[in-house]
Computed example of a mutant assay.
Amino acid sequence: MASVASQLILHPVASRALKLLNTTLGRDKLYRAVQYFARFLAWFLLSREYKIEAARWNALKSHLALARKLLRLGKPLENLQAVLRALQTSGESGEQITTIGRHLGYFGYLTLDTLVWANAVKFFNLKPSTAEKVNKNANRFWFAGILFSITHSLLKAGRLANEIKKLQSSGSWGEKGAETDRDMKLQALRSAREATRYQFTLDMLDVWLPAANIGLVNFNDGILGLCGLITSLMALRQQWIAVSKN
């Protein structure tokens, strides 16, 4: 029995899970997955008149949303650093502009979201009308950031597709070293295109969350909960792969 317990506790998957949860991003994405699952389940239970059970999951959703705001304190600085790096690098102007717009959008969102958190924990008190306005503006910045991210993915995917097509149509280069170099470049371009498509899919699902919060769409909590759950699991998968490489 002790041997079985040791194998389970020391299993490589358990070790990777601990590495994942040792990162702030890993914990945030896990909390986010549970938060949006709770949102979906609360809607599902409420639609079937299970009000007491739904209230339990609604409370969990609200507490996790508040906890995640605390985890994101300081992240606006990362977005400002990304803006500066984008300004200092050369490349496609469209991709550069959308990268800057995306990070400025996320900077505005996370900065205002910090004010929402501070008000929620009573660090300072905002008038209800002011708190609502701050929350709505935060979601506007979030929505803008995702739109810039979607545009960036489209521009980058188009550029990568053209580069791949151009490299493939170049034909045989004759020399073995040149062929190997071309294959490596093709592999790198395809990997980049795959990552770009993955991000595009994630953004196309996530965009409905702030869109609903600012009243652009009228989706119910079931749809929004599923969108958030799927994108959380997608982001969690990316972080799992990242920590597994270390």
Rank of each mutant, 00 (worst) to 15 (best):
L18H: 02
L18F: 05
L18A: 13
K19I: 01
K19G: 10
K19S: 13
L20D: 02
L20C: 05
L20M: 12
L20N: 05
L20K: 04
L21N: 05
L21C: 10
N22M: 13
T23N: 13
T23V: 12
T23E: 15
T23D: 10
T24N: 13
T24I: 13
L25S: 07
L25D: 10
G26F: 05
G26T: 01
R27K: 15
D28A: 13
D28F: 13
D28C: 10
L30Q: 00
L30R: 01
Y31I: 05
Y31W: 08
R32W: 14
R32V: 02
R32F: 10
A33C: 03
A33R: 01
A33F: 04
A33N: 01
A33E: 01
A33V: 00
V34M: 08
V34F: 05
V34D: 03
V34W: 02
V34Y: 01
Q35M: 15
Q35S: 09
Y36P: 06
Y36Q: 07
F37C: 04
F37G: 04
F37E: 01
A38H: 04
A38S: 14
R39K: 15
R39C: 08
R39M: 14
F40I: 07
F40L: 15
L41M: 07
L41N: 05
L41W: 10
L41S: 03
A42S: 13
A42Y: 03
W43R: 15
W43F: 15
W43G: 09
F44T: 02
F44H: 14
F44P: 02
L45Q: 09
L45Y: 11
L46P: 00
L46R: 14
S47A: 11
S47G: 14
S47T: 07
R48H: 14
R48W: 11
R48T: 08
R48N: 14
R48Y: 12
E49T: 03
E49M: 07
Y50A: 10
Y50V: 00
Y50W: 05
E53S: 11
E53K: 04
E53R: 07
E53G: 03
E53I: 01
E53W: 06
A54M: 08
A54L: 11
A54T: 03
A55G: 04
A55I: 01
R56I: 07
N58I: 00
N58C: 06
N58K: 11
N58G: 14
